Deep mutational scan, measured.
Amino acid sequence: MTYKLILNGKTLKGETTTEAVDAATAEKVFKQYANDNGSDGEWTYDDATKTFTVTE
């Protein structure tokens, strides 16, 4: 399945997607991506749209 990440950071904004077997796997990928790019904030997940959002 395709999962989407929306970044609403102070310095990093945008979207990216990943293919993953489940939401937990996608979350690990996205959290590593956000960490690698210095983005940290409040995470939410919408199962209906398969979208993670991180807001700083």
Results as ranks from 00 to 15, higher is better:
Lys13Thr: 10
Lys28Ile: 10
Ala20Pro: 02
Val54Met: 09
Asn37Ile: 14
Tyr3Met: 02
Lys28His: 08
Asp22Ala: 02
Tyr45Thr: 00
Val29Lys: 08
Asp47Pro: 14
Ala23Pro: 08
Gly41Thr: 05
Lys4Leu: 07
Val29Gly: 03
Thr2Trp: 10
Asn8Asp: 10
Glu19Met: 14
Gly14Thr: 14
Glu42Phe: 12
Gln32Phe: 04
Ala23Val: 13
Thr49Leu: 06
Thr17His: 10
Ala26Gln: 00
Met1Thr: 14
Phe52Thr: 01
Lys4Pro: 02
Thr44Ala: 11
Thr51Ile: 04
Gly14Ser: 12
Ala26Ile: 01
Thr16Val: 15
Ser39Leu: 15
Thr18Lys: 03
Thr51Val: 05
Ala34Gly: 02
Lys10Glu: 09
Phe30Gly: 00
Lys50Asn: 07
Thr11Gly: 14
Glu19His: 13
Thr18Pro: 00
Thr17Glu: 08
Val21Thr: 11
Thr55Glu: 06
Thr2Pro: 05
Ile6Ser: 03
Thr11Phe: 14
Val54Cys: 12
Tyr3Cys: 03
Thr18Leu: 12
Thr2Asn: 05
Asp22Pro: 00
Ile6Gln: 04
Leu12His: 13
Gly9Pro: 04
Leu7Trp: 10
Thr2Asp: 04
Gly38Phe: 15
Thr16Tyr: 15
Lys13Leu: 09
Gly38Glu: 06
Leu5Trp: 02
Leu7Ala: 04
Thr25Cys: 08
Thr53Phe: 10
Glu15Lys: 06
Gly41Met: 10
Ser39Cys: 15
Glu56Leu: 12
Ser39His: 15
Ala20Ile: 02
Lys50Gly: 04
Thr2Gln: 09
Glu15Val: 11
Asp36Gly: 06
Asp40Phe: 14
Thr55Trp: 11
Ala24Thr: 08
Thr25Tyr: 07
Leu5His: 01
Tyr45Leu: 01
Leu7Cys: 09
Gly41Asn: 06
Leu7Gly: 03
Thr17Asp: 04
Thr2Cys: 13
Thr25Pro: 00
Lys13Ile: 10
Phe52Val: 01
Lys31Ile: 07
Thr11Gln: 10
Asn37Tyr: 13
Thr2Ser: 06
Gly14Phe: 15
Lys31Ser: 03
Leu7Ile: 14
Trp43Arg: 00
Val29Trp: 14
Val29Phe: 15
Lys13Phe: 11
Ala23Met: 11
Tyr3Gln: 02
Tyr33Val: 05
Asp46Gly: 01
Asn35Arg: 15
Asp47Trp: 07
Thr51Glu: 03
Ala48Glu: 12
Asn8Ser: 10
Glu15Asp: 05
Glu56Cys: 09
Trp43Val: 02
Thr44Glu: 10
Glu42Val: 14
Asp47Glu: 14
Ala34Tyr: 09
Thr25Lys: 05
Asp47Cys: 07
Tyr33Gly: 01
Ala23Trp: 13
Gly41Leu: 12
Lys4Arg: 12
Glu27Cys: 11
Tyr45Phe: 05
Val29Asp: 04
Ala48Phe: 09
Lys13Glu: 06
Leu7Glu: 02
Ala48Leu: 12
Gly38Ala: 07
Thr18Ala: 07
Thr55Leu: 06
Phe52Ser: 01
Glu27Val: 05
Leu5Asn: 02
Gln32Met: 08
Glu56Phe: 13
Leu5Pro: 03
Val21Ile: 13
Glu27Ser: 05
Glu42Gln: 10
Asn8Tyr: 12
Lys31Tyr: 05
Glu19Ala: 07
Ala23Ile: 08
Ala20Gly: 03
Thr17Trp: 12
Ala48Met: 11
Ala48Arg: 09
Glu15Thr: 12
Val54Trp: 11
Asn8Glu: 08
Glu19Asn: 13
Thr16Asp: 02
Tyr33Asn: 02
Glu19Arg: 12
Ala23His: 08
Met1Asn: 14
Ile6Tyr: 06
Asn35Tyr: 14
Thr51Met: 03
Thr51Pro: 00
Thr51Gly: 00
Ala48Cys: 09
Gly41Pro: 02
Ala23Leu: 08
Glu15Cys: 13
Thr49Asp: 04
Leu7Ser: 04
Asp46Arg: 02
Thr53Glu: 05
Glu42His: 11
Ile6Glu: 04
Glu27Lys: 09
Lys13Tyr: 12
Thr51Arg: 02
Lys28Ser: 08
Asp40Leu: 12
Gly38Val: 07
Lys10Met: 12
Thr55Val: 08
Thr18Arg: 04
Asp22Glu: 04
Asp36Phe: 11
Trp43His: 00
Gly9His: 06
Ala26His: 00
Lys10Pro: 13
Val29Leu: 10
Lys28Pro: 02
Lys10Tyr: 09
Tyr45Cys: 02
Thr25Ile: 06
Lys31Glu: 03
Phe30Met: 01
Thr53Val: 08
Lys31Leu: 06
Asp36Pro: 04
Ala34Glu: 02
Leu12Trp: 15
Glu42Pro: 03
Tyr33Met: 05
Ala34Gln: 03
Thr11Cys: 15
Phe52Cys: 01
Thr18Trp: 07
Val54Ser: 02
Ala48Trp: 06
Gly9Asn: 06
Ser39Trp: 15
Ala20His: 02
Gly38Asn: 11
Asp46Leu: 03
Asn35Val: 15
Thr16Phe: 15
Ala20Leu: 02
Lys4Ser: 05
Lys13Gln: 11
Thr25His: 12
Thr53Ser: 05
Asp40Pro: 07
Gly9Thr: 15
Lys4His: 12
Tyr3Ile: 02
Ser39Tyr: 15
Gly41Ser: 05
Asn35Cys: 10
Thr17Leu: 07
Gln32Trp: 05
Leu12Arg: 07
Ile6Phe: 06
Phe30Ser: 00
Thr16Glu: 05
Thr17Lys: 07
Thr49Ala: 05
Thr11Trp: 13
Ile6Cys: 07
Asp47Leu: 06
Lys10Ala: 13
Tyr3Asp: 03
Gln32Ala: 12
Thr25Val: 06
Ala48Thr: 11
Leu12Pro: 06
Ala26Asp: 01
Glu15Trp: 13
Ile6Met: 05
Phe52Trp: 06
Asn35Gln: 15
Asp46Cys: 08
Glu56Gly: 07
Asn35Thr: 13
Ser39Thr: 15
Phe30Cys: 03
Thr11His: 14
Ala48Asn: 11
Leu5Phe: 05
Glu15Pro: 04
Ala23Glu: 06
Phe30Asp: 01
Leu5Gly: 02
Glu15Arg: 05
Thr51Leu: 03
